[in-house]
Nucleic acid binder design. Structure first.
Lengths: 196, 196
DNA sequence: AAACGATTCTGAACAGTGTTCAGTGCAGAT
DNA sequence: ATCTGCACTGAACACTGTTCAGAATCGTTT
């Protein structure tokens, strides 16, 4: 059984992803998706039950895309270089695909109950970073310390792209800022705990 | 002319702020606001023209709240302590008032054209941080360096609260994470540029 | 070939939304 | 007494997601 015949469900997902790619996920209209697929208003509900059902299906694809984009870093690199590259890949994905990125990060689109479905690719992306940080920091007394620093690094990257997507900071220094953020990401992830 | 008679416009703003306080700004319904004010559906449009007009009016109040919350730090403190306190205040505000905070940070609610209206309190809040970082870092060859570090620090804080509000990270380590993030904020803001 | 069953979808309804706008009061100033 | 501007009504319009009985279609089984 080959898959060259996309099936109506996958066709709807593709259309929805196409719309999300340029617009805000919140603005996605089930009726618009149905219209583009040549169907009537109630058709999407049959396949996904819900608007959120469709968005969850789209989020699955998006998590896979993000995860793969961050895995593409070469192995032969120092820990700092590896994290720097991962950070760049993360920022690049978010800025290039604002719709899908927002879809991944907002709990308004993906309910807690549906969240488990996304765990595979999501965990793979998250764990990839945590592992890298843990390996780089080496053994420590506080075994939660690498996790906290991973969260801090993720916060830095996520905050930066969010502020950019919301045009909260001007775009003319964007390249310099991206470089600075990636440096800070390395610094945050790898510098040891400071004595208080 | 005293202001003990709130006027219909301010009454609508108060009702809207009350609704935003617990829900997402996106979920605010003009008709619901009108209903609570004992008015009909078209009334809010008369005062604010637009749904965004009402949200902009609410955002003005919210920016003031945030700005004041961050100014309440004492003067007699080291630069590191001052920034640490500002970071805590920022995180505290965002986690305590998710609705207003989201309102401030998303361009979906406040259009670019309406943006100038908010500049007073917004600039005051932003400039307060940048000044603090500039003063702490001292003179430098690259005069844009303090700004870039301020953006990085803001990114870190904004990302952390956003991830929290979206329940992207578990809440059981929240206090430890807040402390760690504030330390990282100081580190990001005050550590000098590293040689490449 | 015939019957069955599941999948897919229709088409209409329902409740809700933001926005528009002609018209209605109604206060205060001229 | 007239005018003027403000606050608001109430109905319309064009959307939205969701529900659901029924029709059409396709694959499999008998």
């Amino acid at each position: 059984m080959t898959d060259h015949a996309p099936g109506p469900r996958d066709r709807l997902i593709a259309i929805a992803l196409d719309l999300i790619d340029r617009d805000h996920p919140e603005d996605l209209s089930l009726r618009e998706v149905a219209r583009r697929a040549g169907l009537t208003s109630g058709a999407p509900a049959h396949h996904f039950g819900n608007k959120m059902g469709l968005l969850v299906a789209c989020a699955e694809v998006a998590w896979k895309d993000l995860s793969l984009a961050m895995e593409g870093t070469d192995i032969d690199a120092t820990p700092a270089e590896a994290i720097f590259h991962k950070a760049r890949a993360y920022i690049g994905f978010a800025l290039a695909k604002p719709g899908p990125y927002r879809l991944l990060m907002s709990r308004r689109f993906v309910d807690k109950s549906e969240f488990a479905v996304l765990s595979t690719w999501r965990m793979r992306a998250v764990q990839g970073v945590v592992d890298q940080v843990e390996r780089a920091l080496g053994p420590s007394d506080d075994h939660k310390f690498p996790y906290r620093r991973s969260v801090a690094m993720w916060s830095l990257l996520h905050g930066f792209v969010t502020l950019n997507l919301n045009e909260a900071i001007s775009a003319d220094m964007r390249d310099a800022l991206i470089a600075e953020i990636c440096e800070c990401a390395v610094q945050v992830a790898l510098s040891p705990a400071q004595s208080p």
